[in-house]
Amino acid sequence: MNFEVYCDESGLEALTQKNAHLYVGIGGIWLPSECRSDFKDALKKIKEKYSVHGEWKWKKVSPAFFEMYKDIIDFFFNAEYIRFRVILIEANKVDNIRFHNDDAELSFYKFYYQLIKHWIFDFNTYTIFTDLKENRNKGRLNELHRVLDKSNLTSDVISVQGLPSEQSLGIQLADLLTGLVVSKFNNELKSEAKQGLIAHVEQVYLRNEIQPTPKWQEKFNVFKINLQGGW
């Protein structure tokens, strides 16, 4: 089966500024390629309903557009063909000097690998899209593609490419869900609208607080990576 994966991150500055946030998050949505048109049509209808033409972002959540963002979240949870996964990284435990050649950019892409590799399953093909960013090392995405393609010998990662978020509804949805989870764990929220969206997810769909989930949780998977080692 052919899958598309759309990814974005939240709180990235904490990889170099440890006091910026407690957690950095990288998240992605997975959907079958054959469902791409249905996915785009459904989200475009929500935009039309609220006469919105710009991109959706967690940072843009406000009381004026609360109902629109709630509709987006409702769409995600009710669309059985879409899955979401986010990796949470405790910023103060990331040792760039010891483990990443004193290179925060390298550590970021190593965590990207950890996000995606566990959901590359046998006998599928994957096309991966990341939010376009200016990398110091221009070969980062090619290297990520290479190591992901080798992570499962019976699957095929066709490409890893950057896209401007304003051109991709998939990346916009990944931004919204990733920002929501990371904001919950960072416990920094002052926005009532954002607090309301988190409460909506927890009360209506999870019936619990957002928290780390088992690997087999497929709809809304929260992976809090253990950077201390051990059993």
Rank of each mutant, 00 (worst) to 15 (best):
F129Q: 14
A64E: 15
L106Y: 14
I116H: 03
E134F: 11
T154H: 12
N135H: 11
I82R: 02
G162H: 02
I97T: 12
G162D: 05
R83A: 01
T125M: 15
N135K: 08
T130C: 12
P63H: 05
E67K: 04
N142L: 15
I97H: 15
L163Q: 13
K93Q: 13
K70T: 05
Q114W: 09
Y126F: 15
V157T: 09
N142S: 15
N78I: 05
K150W: 13
N135V: 12
D131E: 08
D74Q: 07
D71G: 09
E80P: 00
F65W: 13
F123M: 07
I158R: 10
V94Y: 03
N101P: 07
K70N: 04
N152H: 09
Y69F: 12
M68H: 08
V157P: 00
R83M: 00
H145G: 04
A91T: 02
N137L: 08
F84C: 07
K133L: 08
I82A: 00
T154D: 10
K138R: 13
E80A: 00
R140V: 04
I89E: 03
I128E: 02
I72K: 01
L115V: 10
T127F: 10
E67P: 01
L88Y: 00
L153D: 12
V160N: 05
D102G: 14
R136D: 05
N124V: 03
K138D: 10
K150F: 14
F121K: 02
F76G: 01
I158F: 08
I116V: 10
V147A: 03
N124S: 13
A79F: 11
E143M: 14
S159V: 11
F66P: 00
